[in-house]
Simulated assay, not measured.
Amino acid sequence: MKISRILILFAVLITTSLSFAQESEEDESLSLDSGPISSQFDYISKKSGNYRADGVRYEVVKEVNLYKLRENVLDSVRAFNQRAAGLNATISEHETTISSLNKKLEETTSNLAAVTEEKDSMSFLGISVSKATYNIILWTIIIGLFILLGIFVYRFRNSNILTQEAKQNLAELEVEYEDHRRRALEREQKISRKLQDELNKQKKTK
């Protein structure tokens, strides 16, 4: 029985020691000089005393700790405000950059559209027309020129044929004329000989 009581008492002492050591470590980790605001409030709560009056529990906080906590809170608020101001400035700078990039993008898009339109268009007689219209006009002119060339060749061939026919007719006419002139000359010679013969006969008769 005595041994059991001694063991129980020893266990209680060890448990109490561990709890006290853990609380001491926690108290040492809590401070008003470092750590987040929540841990500083925990430090104030740990270091404050308490009492009851009229059934209400009150916490007694050291004034110096309260001022220190107040300064820390204000410092945190100022740091937060500075960080917020820095973030706002960064956001504003990014918005300016985005606006500039959007403007450049619009200019690039406009230039690209102009280049595409210029690429897809041709100048014809000082007038800007699309490539399709330009091709239609060009092929219309080419086909028209081929048609005119065909008409010219056709008329030239017909004219050449008529010229050859006229030359042939003229050659035939010249042959006929020469033949007629030759026959006329022969007749004239025959008549002249007959006339001369008659004259000679008349002379002999006299």
Rank of each mutant, 00 (worst) to 15 (best):
L125T: 01
S38T: 06
Y154W: 14
L66N: 11
N200C: 06
I6S: 12
S17D: 03
S121W: 09
E178F: 11
S123Q: 10
L69R: 03
L185V: 09
N88F: 08
I14G: 10
L162C: 02
K203H: 08
I8Y: 01
E174W: 06
D120E: 05
V129M: 00
N81S: 04
R78Q: 10
S128A: 05
A53Q: 15
L138I: 10
G55T: 10
E63A: 10
T96D: 06
S4N: 10
G55S: 14
L145F: 14
K131W: 07
T15M: 14
K131E: 09
A85I: 02
R52I: 12
A89E: 03
G49P: 09
L125Y: 06
R57C: 02
I141Y: 14
R181A: 05
A114Y: 07
S123H: 07
K206I: 03
H180P: 07
S48H: 00
N72R: 15
E25K: 15
L195Q: 01
L145K: 11
I142F: 05
K190D: 10
S19I: 05
L101V: 00
F80M: 03
L101R: 00
I191K: 06
I143V: 15
L101N: 00
L7R: 11
K201M: 09
I3T: 13
N65L: 14
T15S: 14
N81T: 04
E28W: 11
D27W: 01
D197R: 08
F146A: 14
M122N: 05
K194N: 12
N158L: 05
G150V: 12
E118G: 11
L69S: 02
L32G: 02
D197H: 08
L30F: 00
Q40W: 01
A79K: 15
Q196E: 09
E26V: 07
D197W: 08
T116W: 06
T15W: 15
S130A: 01
K68V: 01
E176C: 04
Q202L: 14
K103F: 08
